[in-house]
Structures are given as structure tokens and as C-alpha cells.
Simulated assay, not measured.
Amino acid sequence: MLNNNSKQRRIALVGGVSWASSAEYYRRLNIILTDSDEPGLVAVDLNFKHVLEAQELNIFEKEMELVSDGISRAARAGGEIILVCSNTTSRTLNSVAHPDVEVISLIDCVSSHLDELKYTETLLLGTRYTMERDFYRSAMQRQDRKIRIPEGDDRKKIHGIIYDELCRGKILHTSKQWFREMLEFYTAKFTKLDSIILGCTELSLLGMPETVNQCAVIDTIAVHIDTALQVASIA
């Protein structure tokens, strides 16, 4: 809850990867901020096609340029706290320099969340790039923590649900049911699992429960927004 007597720094959203989850950020923030004295949100849009091409070809420099341009536009529009509304795209943020604004890395937020709650074995879900490349897992890895990912066919299925459905605004009952059953399978397979990262903001749109077989389901949009609201409030 924000303190209405404090000065609020303006939050900016760098979205469009995809529009569906970016709209969810905007919706949730506006619900929270309805009765606050916040100065209004800034939102800028990345070209989803261009970002996807850079991710598919693993052209890090191109993806970084696109994200950096979005952050620059958000800052020029008055944003002071910048949220890039994507797990996968957040891999670029350690290489992007914008000293005049505070960019809150979604990956760093999730890593801190795991540390704070002392989770020791987590299942990472997301795009194939997030699950299969090292950038996300290495950020979460600790000496006393295991990071699990689904089997190959399931990784492909999750990737398809994200890009072919959720990114296009389609939330199918059959996919929600399959996803829930998949979570049930892996919480049974990995008996010491204590957490599940919805490591793609679109996966938050599936409306999964907060826990599955006593494993915490981590909604990364919620974690990102909670951190931003804490940072944006100045006593």
C-alpha cells in the first residue's frame, strides 16, 4: 500500500513484449494506484516482431538496442522508475546504461524473492529461451538451490502456448487445464520442489493458483510491481 503523504516517483512501463502481459501490468497498477497521489504512469511500446527476431536468432546486441531505445523513450516521457515488462527481454538490462533513471530488473526481483523466502528447489517455466539458455538460471542459482526445467516436449508446448496463444490475447481452457496438470506432474516428480517460477509474464494470464501441491507459484508480474511500488515511494 502506498503512502499518500509521500512523494511518488513516476513509474514507466516498457512493454509490447507482448501487448497482452503489458496490458496486465497497466491494469494491475491502475487498480492499486486508484486512490493514491501518484503522478500518472508512462507507457512505451517495443516492436514485438523485432524483439522476437532478435531472441530467435540470439542476437543479444540487437535486443539490447531495442530495449535501450524503449527505456530512453520512457525516460524522456517522464518515467523515473522503469519496468521492462518481460522476463526474457530482461536479460539485456545488466548491459543497458541509463544513469538518470532507475531500471528495475524483473530477473533480479525474482531472484531476491527466492532468497527472501529461502526457496531451495524451484521449477523455472517460460519461453524456451528462458528455460534453455543460461541467463535466467544463472541469476537464480545458489550453492544450496536447484533450478529445474521441464522435459523437452513440455518446454516446446509451454513455448507454443506463450507465443501462439497468450501473446495474441488468447486464453484457452484446454491450455489452462494442460498447464495445471503439467504443474501437478512436476511437483510430484521433484519431491523437494518448493516453488514454481512463472518466468514469462504471459503465463500470469493463465490464472494459476498461488500454490500447487504446497509449492508456491510465483507470479513474476506481481513480484515486479511490488518492488516497483516500494522503490517509487519516497518518504
Rank of each mutant, 00 (worst) to 15 (best):
V110D: 08
S90C: 02
N58G: 08
V110A: 03
A74Q: 03
L106E: 05
A97Y: 11
L93K: 04
G70H: 03
I71T: 10
H98K: 05
S95R: 14
V67M: 08
H50C: 14
L66G: 03
I59T: 13
S105P: 04
E53H: 00
S112H: 11
G79D: 11
E65R: 05
V110H: 06
S111K: 15
A54D: 01
V96Y: 15
S111D: 11
L57A: 14
I82L: 05
V96G: 15
H50K: 09
S112G: 13
L106D: 05
V67C: 05
V84W: 09
I104M: 10
T92V: 14
R76K: 10
H50W: 11
S112D: 15
H113W: 13
V110F: 03
I107C: 10
L52T: 04
A74M: 01
N87D: 12
Q55F: 10
N58V: 03
I59K: 14
S86D: 02
I104W: 06
E102V: 10
T89C: 09
A97C: 12
G79Q: 09
S90W: 10
R76L: 07
L93H: 06
D69N: 06
R73A: 01
A97I: 07
S105M: 06
V84L: 14
T92P: 06
H50E: 07
I81R: 02
L106M: 15
V101S: 00
E61N: 12
T89V: 15
E56F: 00
M64E: 12
L66Q: 03
A54S: 12
A74S: 02
E65C: 12
A97H: 14
M64R: 09
C109A: 15
N87W: 02
P99L: 03
Q55G: 05
S111L: 11
G70K: 12
R76E: 10
C85S: 14
H50G: 02
A74I: 06
V84Q: 05
A75V: 13
L114S: 05
V101G: 04
V101M: 05
T92W: 03
L93E: 14
T89K: 01
E53R: 00
F60E: 08
E53P: 03
I82V: 11
S68Y: 04
A77D: 10
S90Y: 04
V67W: 09
K62F: 15
N87H: 02
